[in-house]
């Protein structure tokens, strides 16, 4: 189960990952964030940016309603 949920289906770039990044920053190390997203841009960029920031991408699944569900684990292992 995830520790926090975030819906960025209404956000556009660059706010898509800004929201995810701030949410991950606010979680303790190891906590799990579930993100609901929509569209090609966040699908490509959000998991990549999260990985670049040192967080873990646990899964990414397409949903029946056309959105996707991305599960991330917050990692704050220093810069």
């Amino acid at each position: 189960m995830s520790d926090a949920h975030l819906d960025i289906t209404r956000e556009i770039c660059p706010m898509t990952y800004v929201r995810v990044k701030l949410a991950l920053e606010g979680l303790p190390d190891g906590a799990v964030l579930e993100v609901r997203l929509k569209g090609q841009e966040p699908l490509k960029n959000v998991p990549r940016s999260a990985r670049e920031d040192g967080h873990e991408v646990l899964s990414l699944d397409a949903q029946a309603d056309g959105t996707s569900r991305l599960i991330l684990r917050a990692r704050h292992g220093g810069r």
Binding site: V18, R19, K21, L22, E25, D53
Partner: peptide, 23 residues
């Protein structure tokens, strides 16, 4: 905490790994 208008305005700086919301 950052206010909503600050998140919008500084989003591109927040995106930097070395900055983030804390920076």
């Amino acid at each position: 905490a950052l206010r909503e208008e600050q998140i919008q305005r500084y989003g591109r700086q927040i995106l930097l790994r070395e900055v983030g919301g804390k920076g």
